[in-house]
Amino acid sequence: MSVDFSKNYFELFELECSFQIDFDKLEKRYLSFQKKFHPDKFVNATDYEKRLSLQVTSYVNEAYETLKNDYLKSMYLLKIKGYEMDNQNSTISDPEFLMQQMQLREESEEILLTEDSKLFKNFLLNIKNLKKNCIEDFERKYNELMFDDAAKKINEMKFYISIENDLKRKK
């Protein structure tokens, strides 16, 4: 037995189920949930209520983090449409993108070796732009109901995020 979690993340925050969301509204609803259900407000409550409060806030946090993050939100949108993206099995079949990936990887390794901060900055900026375009592509494909193409864009997004994180970490 637990609290009714049948609502999806968008419904939970009373948002339209789309890529563009009203962040102010998200923020306000999020805080009003937290103000009511955070475990700090239940220190004198029964164990069962403590457990429910933990469940509710965990769910709300998960929902909030998903909607705040473009990559997680994209995957979630497809999931609602019945497209489950399995992290482990998502391989990239597009040969063109595969080539581009390999090139970018090589380039990034070379730049890290040269320790040239200007080159590094430019490269990072380039990756960020590619990611931004990719997110825009996703949104367009999603709105056109082309979910297969949208799913491909998510895989690309994942690659850009991973290379960006690697660069930041190794710098």
Binding site: V3, E14, S32
Partner: peptide, 15 residues
């Protein structure tokens, strides 16, 4: 307890 919890969630969702 569950009904109270849910009724409070509803209240928030109704804004």
């Amino acid at each position: 307890v569950e009904r109270r919890m849910n009724s409070n969630i509803q209240k928030i969702m109704k804004g």
